[in-house]
Design a protein around this nucleic acid. Structure first.
Lengths: 337, 337
DNA sequence: TTCTCGCTAGTAAACGCTTACATGAAACGA
DNA sequence: TCGTTTCATGTAAGCGTTTACTAGCGAGAA
């Protein structure tokens, strides 16, 4: 015992009285070996509890069987959904995931990206704060990449984005069709691509004149910011009859603020969110929201990345947009009055 | 352009007219270099958009700055909570996470573990289906590891576990103290360590005679299984006046089943869960549950792993148990009748 | 018997990097 | 002037694999 270092292929070779080449051949099933040799190698490997050193192996095979995933702050369920989508597809092909999250600024993201070089076959980058060109600069030149929900047109790389604009627009149009007159918006953080698109959708649905006088409150995607906004809305005059929050957590925060202010939802104020996180179904009243097919987004992006990795150079960068779906629940039911 | 291969340290050396050693010294800030050399190297590296190949580097430095995380197939939020705890601590030290999830059986887990060898500095293993000894067999001998919520005593490796038994017992004792008489249990999946411990806690709180006649329904930690159990409970005679589910999702499923059967919670039947997932707070009525400090568990395990990695050999394996906390919300309020 | 063919197994180079050690030039003291 | 020290730089080994190439050997054909 007391082995300080892990066994290497060399140790196995010595113990089995063969060359390292033969050990490699046996273990990888490549090349021909006679049965007795095979047995000796297998026994030796087992006895030494030999496990190949993957870094060394990938150095020469140029395959890591790993994909990197660069995420903004892993907050809430949204990301576990996404990761799950990616992971499920990945494990089907025996791939690993190297995850790096919470990148506040471009430099951090670039650093993380560089440190993935040589450890992954490709990367999936979700960066609602960086545009495609900034990313192109940060990306190691030969590393295959696919972008998720990234602003701007595709630079060097293919991107998959959720149709935030369309989803928001559809939601607000639905609210108007229901007869709501004064619709307010709780926006997401500044400089965030998704926030901006959702706000744009909100405004587009209202039309120029209405949008100009519509109430838009600041927020940052957290429940707290939604609560704050809700307090302001409760006090506003004239009070809005509906609120469209840029994400579900803010919608929920707003809901609580209104309730605490003695207002009923949807009777006094209707509320709608965006994302369709699991909680949306369970809260009372169940939340009307826009379903972004997050899992599907992860899956498609991963598949595309796999293709990019396999195809040496071909593939022109494309920008794919995934549609959204209106999920109408009680929080927006029109009550007869 | 048209560079098919990424630039290597050699390319940089040639372009800067120095040796690879000097390039390495400049880029790592190790060893002394004269300013002109430094500048030449930096310029060359930038021009070639050189990014070091991390696999090659870690092959010789024997550090990957990455920890592996092996997870079972986790549903819902529990997963993201845990990852968040690990990730937050990891990022602080500039570490990456190599994640591998969804392992149904021991062989799959062992395979995943082996393929992490040489790519991580240590692993965090969460495997409620495997005991510590089975894991010892699967683990590459020299790979530092820390176990999470694993059954059995510590083998070669340190383990962190949630006090499932204590938490369940405390919850059921609380229910009895509230005056509930007929308490039923919805159990987790067979062969799962946490399920078993929670059931054991339930029985311990009831005492031998009561436990013998208590209603225990099967479940598998999903909302659906909770719903099914809830339907059975609604039809049972005599109907229980309280239900303790082995996790929150089943508690929620049960809640819906009871509601659909026309029963009110907590007036007709009180309900309690385990885990304190975010939804528990938001559901109506808010769910009484046991808070397992999942994030804290992840954090502590990661810190311990860091220590194990740094300390070459010392450290005797220990088993740490993290306490739980009763979270009493409306779903268990005793109603005057 | 000898030549050739077909296999198995070994040798050694290569992957991209770090680093111990060697080298040689400049600087300094005597 | 010549040793001696100092310091920047280069040389080359080595990390643990895979794999092209080579060598050797036994069998079958002539």
């Amino acid at each position: 015992m007391g082995e300080l270092l892990a066994a290497t292929i060399k140790d196995v070779a010595i113990r089995a009285r063969v060359s390292t080449a033969s050990v490699s051949r046996v273990l990888n099933g490549s090349g021909a070996v006679t049965e007795p040799t095979r047995q000796r190698v297998l026994r030796a490997a087992q006895h030494l509890r030999y496990t190949p050193h993957e870094a060394a192996r990938s150095l020469i095979t140029r395959r890591t069987h790993t994909i990197g995933v660069l995420l903004p702050d892993i907050h809430g369920e949204y990301f576990s959904e996404l990761i799950r989508g990616i992971d499920r597809a990945a494990r089907l092909r025996g791939l690993h995931l190297l995850v790096s999250s919470s990148h506040g600024d471009a430099d951090e993201a670039a650093l993380a990206l560089r440190s993935m070089n040589g450890r992954v076959d490709g990367v999936l980058v979700m960066s609602p704060y960086l545009d495609a060109h900034a990313l192109d600069d940060a990306l190691p030149p030969t590393l295959p990449a696919v972008l998720l929900n990234t602003p701007g047109d595709a630079g060097r790389t293919t991107a998959f984005v959720i149709d935030d604009f369309g989803g928001a627009k559809a939601m607000v149009e639905h609210l108007r069709a229901q007869g709501f007159q004064r619709i307010a918006h709780i926006a997401g953080p500044e400089g965030n691509y998704e926030s901006a698109e959702r706000l744009r959708g909100f405004q587009a649905a209202l039309g120029r004149t209405l949008a100009a006088k519509a109430l838009v409150l600041p927020g940052n995607f957290t429940e707290e910011s939604g609560y704050l906004a809700g307090q302001k809305l409760a006090a506003a005059t004239p009070r809005p009859d509906a609120v469209f929050a840029a994400n579900d957590m803010m919608a929920i925060g707003c809901l609580f603020a209104l309730r605490d202010a003695g207002l009923a939802c949807p009777a006094d104020v209707a509320i709608a969110g965006f994302d369709d996180i699991p909680i949306a179904r369970y809260i009372s009243p169940p939340l009307t929201t826009v379903r972004a097919q997050t899992t599907e987004l992860g899956r498609q992006a991963r598949d595309e990345l796999a293709r990019t990795i396999d195809a040496p150079a071909g593939m022109k960068p494309m920008r794919h947009t995934l549609g959204t779906q209106l999920v109408v629940r009680e929080s927006c039911h029109r009550t007869p009055n």
